[in-house]
Computed example of a mutant assay.
Amino acid sequence: MKELEELRSIEAIERFIQDHTFSFVYVSRQDCSVCHAILPKLRELLEQFPRISLGHIQGEAVGEIASKYLIFTAPVLLLFVEGKEHLREDRFVQFGALEKKLKNLMELFS
């Protein structure tokens, strides 16, 4: 499974996004069953994309994330390329479509 970096502050999130060319940020909530179901599938999918780094945020722990990144639900999946948001998925994720989008983005930035 894809390695996961726990991000516990808004500063850690910003540093993670800046430190990695391809940074995938997964925002979840402790009380969200959908969040718990999606994370293992996401980690498995991202195994195909070694250049993408994965960071995880518990939304309750980093309250500022909602206003900074306009997050209104959980889970939210955000892909940043060179610090800019290029992909956003939320709540019910279609993994087949997500995989295609990731492949297209990775080809675009190769």
Rank of each mutant, 00 (worst) to 15 (best):
2 K>A: 14
3 E>T: 15
3 E>N: 13
3 E>W: 00
5 E>A: 13
7 L>A: 10
9 S>Q: 08
9 S>G: 08
10 I>W: 07
11 E>F: 14
12 A>Y: 00
12 A>N: 06
13 I>F: 02
13 I>G: 03
14 E>C: 01
15 R>F: 05
16 F>H: 10
16 F>M: 09
17 I>S: 05
17 I>D: 03
18 Q>E: 12
18 Q>A: 13
18 Q>G: 10
19 D>M: 09
19 D>Q: 15
20 H>W: 09
20 H>F: 08
21 T>Y: 01
21 T>M: 07
23 S>D: 06
23 S>C: 08
24 F>K: 11
24 F>E: 01
24 F>V: 14
25 V>P: 00
25 V>R: 00
25 V>H: 01
27 V>F: 07
27 V>Q: 01
29 R>A: 15
29 R>V: 05
30 Q>K: 05
30 Q>L: 04
32 C>T: 07
33 S>N: 10
33 S>D: 08
33 S>T: 09
34 V>Y: 03
34 V>L: 07
35 C>R: 04
36 H>T: 09
37 A>I: 03
37 A>Q: 13
38 I>H: 02
39 L>Y: 00
40 P>N: 15
40 P>R: 13
40 P>H: 08
40 P>Y: 07
40 P>K: 13
41 K>Y: 08
44 E>Y: 05
44 E>A: 11
44 E>N: 05
45 L>E: 11
45 L>R: 06
46 L>M: 07
47 E>H: 09
48 Q>H: 14
49 F>E: 06
49 F>K: 02
50 P>V: 06
51 R>F: 01
51 R>Y: 01
51 R>A: 15
53 S>A: 15
53 S>G: 12
53 S>P: 09
54 L>E: 09
54 L>W: 13
54 L>S: 04
56 H>M: 10
56 H>S: 13
57 I>Y: 00
57 I>Q: 01
58 Q>R: 10
58 Q>I: 12
60 E>Y: 14
60 E>D: 13
61 A>Y: 00
62 V>P: 08
64 E>N: 12
64 E>M: 12
65 I>E: 04
65 I>P: 01
65 I>V: 15
66 A>Q: 05
66 A>V: 03
67 S>K: 11
68 K>V: 09
68 K>S: 04
68 K>D: 00
69 Y>D: 12
71 I>N: 08
73 T>P: 00
73 T>I: 10
73 T>D: 07
76 V>G: 02
76 V>Q: 01
76 V>I: 06
77 L>H: 02
77 L>K: 02
78 L>W: 00
78 L>Y: 06
79 L>G: 04
79 L>R: 11
79 L>T: 04
80 F>R: 05
80 F>M: 07
80 F>K: 07
80 F>E: 05
81 V>N: 07
84 K>I: 10
84 K>F: 14
85 E>D: 11
85 E>L: 13
86 H>I: 12
86 H>D: 13
87 L>V: 09
89 E>H: 14
90 D>R: 03
90 D>H: 03
93 V>K: 08
94 Q>P: 02
94 Q>K: 11
94 Q>D: 14
95 F>M: 03
95 F>G: 10
96 G>V: 06
97 A>S: 04
98 L>G: 06
98 L>C: 06
99 E>T: 04
99 E>D: 11
101 K>W: 04
101 K>T: 10
102 L>F: 06
102 L>I: 02
103 K>D: 08
103 K>W: 03
104 N>G: 04
104 N>M: 07
106 M>S: 12
108 L>Q: 13
109 F>Q: 11
110 S>H: 09
110 S>C: 10
